[in-house]
Design a protein around this nucleic acid. Structure first.
Lengths: 152, 152
DNA sequence: ATAATTGCAAAGCGTTTGCACCCTG
DNA sequence: CAGGGTGCAAACGCTTTGCAATTAT
């Protein structure tokens, strides 16, 4: 009972925090958008649009599939969430800390770790310049096996 | 006329070379497979399955769409061609030199340059180990503007 | 009131698959 | 004649879109 109250309180706090993120990105914090973002925040690994839709469908705050897609597209564009493409044919989404970084994805359980600090820019600029290119962006995705899956 | 003979000759030479690549990959060199590979070889940039299908459809050696897909999947698996995913939702294919390398893609004209020599492995191994991961593979794709598109 | 947002269902699009036919070995 | 390869069309799965209803400012 006390725990119940506590978690209810925490959920409220989190929702306010998420609403803040939305406002900061100039995204109107509708019930659906906060719900989608909360689902993403509670996801240990990354999640596809379909997974989020399925999860919310069974909750007490369902959100239409189209809205899930529209929300994720908007949030990706506004850099509130990261879109990963290690899945081929399906996009995965993840709530990340800000700044440029890359991801380490476990091929077995889909656990995702952030790889902070990218030291590629300098090398890329040099190597690209040799071919007349000016790099505008890059994506690096590392696939591997996490400790738990390796020892299991 | 002489030129015609010449190019005909060159085409034969190239086809034999391509057949060799297929045999080396333990892929039976059928007419369709050689045709798909030749289309890829004559492509200045990278190409999607649909593009290759469309091009061959208008040539005198059409190949069914399903066969194009099956061939590209097989050749990718056998490391005869590289599959790039900078397009989101659609895979691009390219005939590459062997060995591990990355790509520089022009966002305007889709020109692709190979970026030889990848110095990421060491850094990745270290950074991954800190999180208990053992990296098995990685993909780096650099998007930029090529010289021609920048000055145009 | 005005403009943005949502849900639903239909359409879109790239890709895969079932199956009969064909060719090669 | 046995087995892989091919073509066609249908099926698939993810994503987008048109539109009317709803909601926020």
């Amino acid at each position: 009972m006390t725990l119940n109250l506590m978690s209810r309180y925490l959920i409220c706090v989190e929702e306010q925090e998420l609403e803040g993120r939305l406002r900061a990105a100039r995204v109107r914090p509708t019930r659906q958008r906060v719900t989608v973002l909360a689902a993403l925040a509670s996801e240990e690994h990354d999640a596809t649009a379909q997974e989020i839709y399925a999860r919310l469908r069974e909750s007490d705050e369902p959100v239409g599939l189209a809205t899930v897609y529209r929300t994720l597209a908007l949030l990706t564009e506004r850099d509130v969430v990261d879109e990963l493409s290690h899945h081929q044919g399906e996009s995965c989404y993840r709530l990340c800390s800000g700044g440029h970084h890359h991801h380490l994805v476990c091929s077995s359980c889909h656990r995702v770790e952030e790889l902070a600090g990218c030291e590629l820019d300098e090398w890329l600029a040099t190597a690209s310049a040799e071919r007349g290119f000016v790099p505008t962006s890059h994506t690096l995705e590392v696939v591997g096996l996490c400790e738990r899956c390796r020892t299991a």
